[in-house]
Each structure stands twice: as structure tokens, then as C-alpha cells.
């Protein structure tokens, strides 16, 4: 302390409180549903990625985001907009170029970090609840130091979002030429939410304007920063919404491709 620190005294101890936490509310609930939600999603995504089928609706050019861009030799005719550069070994997903980056973008995302550090790592499970580890060095060392690479994965995510947008545009298609159905709405909705999630990223907020010292000298960037900040506040919600829209989009495309039910067409 400014004062008493220099006064001689022995090592001091904390209050001896027996209970690990005295919280009486359901603090374990939030980490629990996070674990359930994330596990379920990852399980679904893994299964889908390794199904290697039902990802392309030839009739309407629907391509699920889980297989975009499709770049293995296994890709069906028409789904591969960017060529097929990889062999069709089963372990290689069709979207081998994008999925790792998307995974890393979300893995290093400031919101997801909070979510899984709390729920999977228990570090800490909830505020004022002890974390489950003997030692702790945070993100100061490898591999967690790599979290700082979030910025790179953000750049990658922007490119991937462009590809997804392109997919959504190409999907305005029917055998007669232009077409528009419920699938388009879902694809567009997914892309919009993906953009919202990507742009609301903390790294984006920083690059757009957060790094400036004088907003007043950069009025346009300041306005952009204000907009991104508005979205950024909703980053957590967007993170979960996009998990939902991704799964929904994929499921819809799968269902239509597998002909479980037909696409609801508005035009052609």
C-alpha cells in the first residue's frame, strides 16, 4: 500500500473461509448449457462433414456452408466453384481450405474463449468460484499465446464470408434460370448473420477504428467504429445465432438434397 507496505510485518494470510464458494445462485447453469450447446454442435458438424454427401442441390445450386468451397476430387459436378485441388481421401473434408480457418477463427474468438475457458476448462467456471487448476499462466505461453493470432483468422473469415456470400448469390437459380425459394432465404439469412458475427469481432473493431488515438481526425472510421461497436456488444448473441443458422442451413440443404422434403419455391 502507499502507506503501510513499508511497515514491517509478517506474511499475511487471507480470510479462512471454509466454503469454496458461498454463491447461492445457479452459477453452474451457464457453463453447463455452454458445454451442452457446443458439444452438440461440434458433434453435428463432425458427422456432417464426414458424411461426404447431401451437400449440393443441383437443381437450385444450394451448397451448404460446411462444404464451401468444395475442393476435393469427390465434389459433385457443379458444386466445385473453385476447382478440385485435393484428393478424395475420406479424412479430408470437402471444405478443407475453409473449415480449419473457421474453426480457428471461432476458437480464438474473444467470446468463445470466455465460453470454453469457463465451461470446459473451468478456469474459472463462474465468477468467484475457484478454478480447477493448480497453476495458471493464462495466455502468456505456447500454445495459448497463439490466441493472439485471432487477427489472421479474422482476415481469413472475411474471405470465407465472401465465398459464402458468393454461394448465396449463385443459389438464385433454378433449372429455368433465375429462381428463388425458402432455401435462398435461409442461405441469405445465414450469410447476413455470418457477416454480422465476423464484423462484430473484437479484432475488426480494433482495425476499423479502435486503434486510433484521435477519432476526431478520422470521422469516417469513427462512424464505422461506432457501428462495429454496436454490433460488438452483441458478439456473444451473434456467436450463438450463427452456430444455429449454420446448422440450420446445413440441415436444410441436406434435407432437400436427400429429398426428405422439397424446397419451398416462391419463383420458379
Amino acid at each position: 500500500m502507499t502507506s503501510t507496505a513499508t511497515r514491517p510485518r509478517g506474511a499475511r494470510t487471507r480470510a479462512a473461509i471454509a466454503a469454496k464458494t458461498l454463491r447461492t445462485d445457479r452459477w453452474w447453469f451457464a457453463p453447463l448449457i455452454t458445454v451442452v450447446g457446443l458439444t452438440a454442435w461440434v458433434a453435428y458438424a463432425t458427422v456432417r462433414v464426414y458424411m461426404h454427401k447431401w451437400y449440393w442441390v443441383e437443381e437450385f445450386h444450394y451448397l451448404t456452408p460446411f462444404y464451401s468451397p468444395c475442393i476435393t476430387d469427390r465434389c459433385v459436378e457443379g458444386a466445385a466453384h473453385f476447382g478440385t485441388v485435393l484428393p478424395d481421401w475420406w479424412i479430408i473434408p470437402e471444405a478443407a481450405f475453409t473449415l480449419p480457418f473457421l474453426l480457428l477463427f471461432r476458437l480464438t474468438c474473444y467470446y468463445y474463449r470466455k465460453a470454453y475457458y469457463r465451461s470446459f476448462w473451468l478456469s474459472p467456471p463462474a465468477c468467484a468460484v475457484p478454478d480447477g487448476h493448480q497453476t495458471y499462466s493464462g495466455e502468456t505461453r505456447f500454445p495459448l499465446l497463439g490466441q493472439n493470432l485471432h487477427r489472421y483468422f479474422f482476415y481469413a473469415a472475411v474471405i470465407i464470408s465472401l465465398i459464402n456470400s458468393w454461394d448465396a448469390v449463385l443459389a438464385f437459380h433454378s433449372p429455368e434460370g433465375f429462381g428463388f425459394g425458402l432455401g435462398n432465404l435461409i442461405l441469405i439469412g445465414n450469410v447476413v448473420m455470418l457477416w454480422a458475427y465476423t464484423i462484430s469481432c473484437h479484432s475488426c473493431r480494433h482495425i476499423i477504428g479502435g486503434r486510433l488515438k484521435h477519432f476526431s481526425k478520422h470521422p469516417l472510421r469513427y462512424r464505422a467504429w461506432t457501428g462495429v461497436s454496436w454490433l460488438n456488444v452483441r458478439h456473444m448473441q451473434l456467436a450463438w445465432i450463427t452456430l444455429g443458422t449454420l446448422a440450420l442451413t446445413d440441415f436444410y440443404v441436406m434435407a432437400v438434397a436427400a429429398e426428405w422434403f422439397p424446397d419451398l419455391r416462391f419463383i420458379n
Partner: peptide, 15 residues
């Protein structure tokens, strides 16, 4: 200051 120790679990903001 040990900024890297922070794993942004946001309890500071919560309280």
C-alpha cells in the same frame, strides 16, 4: 503488467 495472463473470462466486467 501481465496482460497475457488474462483469459478474458470477463468476471471483472461482471462485478
Amino acid at each position: 503488467m501481465g496482460l497475457g495472463y488474462c483469459n478474458i473470462t470477463k468476471c471483472c466486467t461482471e462485478v
